[in-house]
Design a protein around this nucleic acid. Structure first.
Lengths: 251, 251
DNA sequence: ACAAAAGTGTTGTGAATACACCCATGC
DNA sequence: GCATGGGTGTATTCACAACACTTTTGT
């Protein structure tokens, strides 16, 4: 407690790097999928990992995330929702040295399958379930990051209108419902879902057109509204209250 | 799009440091207060700032936060709630150079007024309102961090039981209610509040004793329960739905 | 007795669920 | 017509805000 004070002069550690990692979600074929790359370099060469890279000199964190997003997916900057998720900095998380990673969460409509990434490694959409099942293991602590991102997006669509960001415009109420069903992994009542969405002012706005499904009555088409928050929220009923340990594990 | 691939070799920037900053909240005299230090060194010498410091070599982020917390408040590790808030990394945010800060949010019961900090600067509890009012300006981007922390804690007590972490055990229902009132800045109905808390299993557990206030009927005493989440949540009714831009500002 | 705070009862309102039912289209 | 999905109506249940009311203390 009476430690020397003069000794504790503010000096950063010798060598350390800051990276961004991306958890990019989309919904394809009714399933939540995440963009994974196959690592082309050591360590973990050949294994699956989240896309990411080092933050450049003078580059803002969000700008680095958006740059990596563009490099990995070829999608322009403005069209995807992007938000900071969490910082990961366990000393041993990367065998190359002390690397602190700021994870970002991105999602958008069913995106074109990405080309081979700029670091010459393949990128693929992988169902999130196959990672959680253990069929696919991720490099570094990326599975933890993925789980945190999943929990975040599951929570976000409860309180905000960002589920609509998963939909290509224009979209139907059923399209939007399938986002919720894929992200939460539970079926929702179509009629009640429709009512909740419609009654939330500014969630979706009708464009006055219709789209015929393969079979059945044509559905009205909508685009995203201006509202950002859902009041009251869309409660995910079927799911049991999970612990949701937001705290960080402290050694 | 057809940018040179070989050029983009992963190399971190030349000089950069990682720090932690702390938003430490408590409730004193019915008001939400934040721990601020008066900076003893340049830049911003003499101005108010959040406590914080550089992450040491081989030190986990959460460990660095807990160390700074202990150094600034003298409070032991286990007794305060601590969670990661957000990472701030705008290139120009610190005039000393590229410093990326991982902000942590901490709160606990009415803590002893801290001694002069280890870097020989005074630390004080300051009402959050006096920062928001503009009476006090903070160094760096610390006002933004404080606002984010405030929004986080306001949201957290809606969905989780962490409001009880603000209370010294044992506590009364009224003690807990005053936390909510101070954090949200709205008065709550004592009877309805009591019912909601009692009906949430595992939020508080009675210890079978009572405590007499200065005047009035004695109140039952409780300690924190095991529940972590509130289902259904405690909705903050009086407050209007605010935009809550969770997105990061991207240049 | 009185003031003050703890705690209980009650009622109207609105939201969530479950499910019956009607509508519009392709075949 | 019939299957299929879009969309509406409605009853039951439940949570909540509002507020009247009772209980238990100190002075």
């Amino acid at each position: 407690m009476a430690m020397s004070k003069a000794v504790r002069r503010r000096r950063p550690p010798a060598s350390l790097a800051v990276a961004v990692d991306l958890v990019i979600f989309t919904v394809r074929n009714g399933r939540l999928q995440v963009l994974l790359i196959e690592r082309g370099n050591l360590p973990y060469r050949g294994e699956a990992a989240l896309p990411g890279g080092f933050v450049r000199d003078g580059e803002a964190l969000g700008a680095a995330a958006r740059r990596e997003l563009r490099e990995e997916t070829g999608v322009g900057g403005g069209s995807l929702h992007l938000e900071q998720l969490h910082a990961y900095g366990e000393p041993g998380r990367d065998p190359r040295g002390r690397i602190i990673s700021i994870a970002y969460l991105a999602f958008g409509p069913d995106l074109p399958v990405p080309q081979a990434g700029t670091d010459a490694s393949a990128a693929h959409w992988i169902p999130v379930s196959s990672v959680l099942d253990g069929q696919i293991t991720l490099a570094f602590d990326h599975e933890e990051i993925l789980r945190d991102g999943l929990e975040r997006v599951r929570s976000q669509i409860e309180h905000t209108t960002i589920a609509a960001a998963f939909c290509k415009e224009p979209f139907t109420i059923a399209d939007l419902r399938q986002i919720y069903e894929a992200v939460w992994g539970v079926p929702l009542d179509p009629s009640n879902f429709r009512r909740k969405v419609m009654k939330t002012e500014g969630f979706v706005v009708p464009i006055g057109e219709r789209r015929s499904p393969d079979i059945g009555r044509p559905a009205a088409l909508f685009r995203r509204g201006l509202a950002k928050t859902l009041t009251p929220p869309l409660t995910r009923l079927g799911s049991i209250a999970q612990p949701l340990a937001d705290d960080e594990k402290l050694t």
